[in-house]
Design a protein around this nucleic acid. Structure first.
Lengths: 169, 169
DNA sequence: GGTGAAAATTTCGAAGG
DNA sequence: CCTTCGAAATTTTCACC
């Protein structure tokens, strides 16, 4: 997927109701056999397989991954970090974005509208590890204000997005 | 996994270096064959397969899922929502947690330490859809304060947690 | 688009060091 | 706990509706 095909493949075909069902199923459980998925969406395995291939070629399905229990690998602490950067050049911004993106503790990183400029979700082992991360963060580039909010309890965390119903046409 | 076995299976064996490698690989790409994973971690397929089975039985690997491109299914807007609930009973809290957890737009939902009581990450199609969500949220239970922060740009978003190196023993 | 079945891979378990 | 080997299941392709 590094040649012309990858561009051609990115056709933005509208997703029909069956594609949406497939996405809903695969977001929940990607270990199902194609035949099983076909059953659930009312298709036999070949057409179901073709649709999945196409959804992957189109980039609708990004990839398949295993989800790992945060606590079981000793990463007990989730932190939401709000950053005010102050006024900066495009070059500064790129440096900042690249540096933060490269930190493996950073699971999510968004540029925001409004009072906060950037928002991070960071996962670390404990407070000590967070302190190290924090020092690394503020040591990388100058920042106007950084606020850390610590999670006490994960009530819900999913990767499955709510696939919208098909537009009426 | 609904009987005694599920309890027995939840043994908390310490993960060795190879298990950690397997987790790192599978968090990145769960579509690889067992033989391919074995190659990458220096194992032939049977022992690699057994380790993966065990990591699943132990709940270290929670599940395998497909990741879907948010924009390609028309969910263009990510919102971080900070909630101050004020003082409330345990019963209130359960009602609140259940109601919010049941909303499919809520991708993450944490109880926080400090000034903010709860933090949500919400994914919706657009501002109009967010307004509907917001009304649903504040209509469900009384809340002292709700702050919505809108993402302009997703700079990084991953599901792979940084598996810590094996403790020195 | 869809069906059904053959070919190519992969998974999973047995036997043994 | 690992390796090799093979049966069973699944994925993927193909010829045809």
């Amino acid at each position: 997927m590094t040649d012309i095909d990858s561009v051609v493949a990115e056709s933005n075909r509208r997703l029909d109701a069956i594609d949406r069902k497939i996405l809903t199923v695969l977001q929940q459980d990607a270990s199902l056999s194609v035949a099983e998925i076909g059953d659930r969406v009312g298709l036999s395995s070949t057409p179901c397989w073709k649709r999945i291939q196409r959804l992957e070629a189109d980039g609708v399905i990004i990839k398949r991954v295993a989800l790992v229990d945060q606590d079981k690998i000793g990463l007990g602490l989730s932190v939401f970090v709000s950053i005010e950067s102050g006024d900066h050049s495009d070059a500064w911004l790129k440096t900042f974005a690249d540096a933060v993106s490269a930190m493996p503790e950073v699971i999510e990183f968004y540029r925001m509208a409004g009072d906060v400029d950037y928002m991070l979700r960071v996962v670390v082992a404990d407070m000590r590890a967070y302190d190290q991360f924090y020092k690394k963060l503020i040591g990388t580039v100058p920042l106007k204000n950084v606020t850390s909010r610590f999670a006490m309890e994960k009530i819900k965390s999913v990767t499955a997005l709510p696939v919208p119903p098909m537009p009426v046409s």
